[in-house]
Design a protein around this nucleic acid. Structure first.
Length: 356
DNA sequence: GGGTTCGGACTCTCAACAAT
DNA sequence: TTGTTGAGAGTCCGAACCCA
């Protein structure tokens, strides 16, 4: 069964409203070329400088690369170091890791909220456009949080004194600053079981202000956060990548980005499509969307609804359309689109204060 | 087979608390 | 005053169900 995203994977779905100025990566950089950043503020195009020397600043752009999972390459390997070869991530492996956080919109439109479907920030949202109900695609009204609710004494959690901030689901483990784990997977638990295959899934967005960096070459020991070598540096100079890729606010010593205009040519000249960062996040962790979700659902032991058509409406979120209304609208044919929006308030206008 | 419904997991927000 | 906690409120995944 295709889900909403899959169903909308047509032309409409391709028109992501963001990033607004995303431009295709200049042709000439093959999809397998690993030496460049996925996310550039300026494209490494000889025709586009940084704007400081009279060249035309190019718009921000981003490219997906077929790099090994967990690898981002803002900087090419140092001289003499070959570009590593990668394989596409194995979907099952990604499914074993913790699922990425689901990103929600700030406020879903009334139609999407009623239908419990994904919305987006723009109005009308893609879904409403798809179903031709953009007139009713408006933000709902968020209820005021009740004030004055007495809350019990809070239990202070043990403060983690490793001094590390965790970047959005990528907690640094206690062993050291550079001992990162993919998607928050802990390296300290499950000591007896063999470690899972290293899934170098990394955040698709490095911490703000940081640049992702490719795995150091053999023998390269990045400086630790406190000056010492990173504990997870590849021992004895093997090419075994660390469990987690470090981020560098600046290129590490000995590694410098190419100046504008002098990036090496591509290896195969294939065109690289642009991607939506949001989708990138989703896709990276869910290479095969349906498969991953099935597994994740099974893994979480998610109970699923077993009711019938006359099941009660959600207790948590009272629906604005009573069953009788659903039946009425679905049979009257007075709606446009004929989708799950048929029984939505969109056709009758937004129902505000439905639960007030 | 495609569309619809909606249970419930998941995420976000922010007031209540706790620490300083 | 600042930082943390945790529950309320909202989003939306995805399986069950419906219908042409």
């Amino acid at each position: 069964m295709v889900n909403d995203q899959a169903k909308s994977a047509g032309p409409v779905a391709q028109e992501h409203p963001y990033p607004p100025t995303m431009a295709p990566y200049p042709q000439g950089f093959g999809p397998t070329y690993p030496g460049y950043p996925i996310y550039f503020a300026q494209p490494p195009d000889a025709n586009h400088g940084d704007g400081s020397n009279g060249t035309t600043p190019a718009p921000p752009f981003m490219i997906p690369i077929a790099a090994a999972p967990g690898m981002l390459y803002p900087y090419p390997p140092p001289p003499g170091q070959p570009y590593p070869q990668f394989q596409q991530p194995a979907p099952p492996a990604a499914a074993n890791g913790p699922r990425p956080k689901r990103k929600q919109v700030k406020m879903a439109c009334t139609n999407c909220a009623t239908a419990c479907k994904r919305c987006d920030e723009v109005r009308p949202c893609q879904r409403c456009v798809k179903y031709g109900i953009q007139e009713s695609c408006i933000d709902g009204v968020r209820k005021e949080r009740q004030k004055g609710i007495k809350r019990g004494p809070y239990k202070r959690k043990n403060k983690v004194t490793t001094g590390d901030a965790s970047f959005g689901g990528f907690p640094a483990t206690g062993g050291g600053d550079s001992e990162w784990q993919a998607n928050g997977a802990s390296s300290s638990n499950a000591p007896s079981s063999p470690p899972p295959a290293p899934v170098h899934a990394i955040p698709h967005y490095p911490p703000e202000g940081f640049f992702p960096y490719f795995f150091p070459p053999p023998g390269f020991v990045p400086p630790g956060h406190e000056g010492g070598p990173a504990p997870d540096a590849a021992p004895n100079g093997t090419s075994q990548p660390p469990a987690m890729m470090p981020y560098y606010a600046m290129p590490p010593p000995g590694y410098f980005p190419f100046p504008p205009g002098v990036y090496p040519p591509s290896q195969n000249g294939a065109q690289v499509p642009t991607i939506d960062p949001a989708d990138a996040t989703r896709n990276a962790s869910q290479p095969a969307e349906s498969e991953g979700r099935v597994e994740e659902s099974q893994a979480t032991g998610k109970k699923r609804y077993k009711g019938g058509k006359n099941r009660e409406s959600k207790s948590k979120k009272p629906k604005v359309v009573p069953p009788s209304h659903i039946s009425e609208t679905s049979t009257s044919g007075g709606t446009v689109g004929g989708s799950d929006q048929a029984s939505e308030p969109g056709t009758n206008g937004p129902v505000e204060g439905d639960d007030v």
